[in-house]
């Protein structure tokens, strides 16, 4: 465990918990894409298949349980909670699942480290995580403004990705045999997707005005 990895995990944790707590407190999910949240729930469910079979550390197991619990709780709030679900704008959240999920299944089947069920599912989760933010970014573009909630959420997710890249660089130079092309490339693609968003985020922050994304 290095400082980049720990900081990355903590910003990742913060992004999910901030979202969950805010939805719980303000009883609204306005501006949040249910599709992105469902894709993240699938990401955690397919990546952590080893949770009960391979013990890595107490930290690792607890974090996995928190990510699974919080991501499914967010989906439950948006779909089932009698007040929160009314604030979900289904008509704006139109990104099609198939355009994201099918290419990820296809890629995971042909490009993986080992052709076993667990390994293919793990690889699928990496590809899916890389693009799962797309429905949220499309929703942001469509509504053309983001409140603090959505802004902080996407900012924390972006920070998590950037810190993970630093973690990989650190581990590459400090650990023997630490080479993992699949998570690295998927992770870089995911980080690049945030780049565009960050430009506008910082721009609006610098000018101290509400963020407006271009059409």
């Amino acid at each position: 465990m290095n400082i980049f990895r720990l900081a990355g995990d903590m910003t990742h944790l913060a992004s999910v918990l901030v979202l969950l707590l805010k939805i719980h407190t303000i009883k609204s999910c306005a501006g949040i894409s249910l599709k992105t949240q469902e894709l993240y729930a699938i990401v955690f469910a397919t990546r952590y298949l080893d949770i009960f079979t391979d013990f890595i550390s107490l930290y690792n197991t607890i974090m996995k349980l928190i990510f699974l619990g919080s991501s499914f709780s967010i989906v439950w709030y948006i779909r089932q909670h009698k007040i929160v679900r009314r604030s979900y704008d289904k008509d704006q959240d139109t990104f099609r699942y198939v355009f994201i999920v099918l290419p990820c299944i296809f890629l995971a089947l042909i490009i993986n480290e080992k052709f076993t069920f667990k390994e293919v599912m793990w690889t699928f989760s990496l590809y899916l995580e890389a693009v799962a933010i797309l429905p949220q970014l499309v929703l942001l573009q469509r509504t053309r403004n983001i409140d603090n909630l959505t802004g902080q959420y996407v900012f924390l997710l972006g920070a998590y990705r950037a810190l993970y890249i630093l973690n990989w660089i650190y581990r590459y130079f400090t650990e023997p045999h630490y080479i993992h092309w699949i998570p690295w490339i998927a992770g870089i693609v995911q980080t690049l997707l945030y780049g565009d968003f960050f430009y506008y985020y910082f721009h609006s922050w610098k000018n101290n005005k509400k963020l407006q994304l271009p059409a």
Binding site: S57, M63, K64, K114, Y164, R171, E175, H177
Partner: peptide, 10 residues
Amino acid sequence: EKQDSGKDEL
């Protein structure tokens, strides 16, 4: 092990 050295990541 080489194959699993990154599986401790979340």
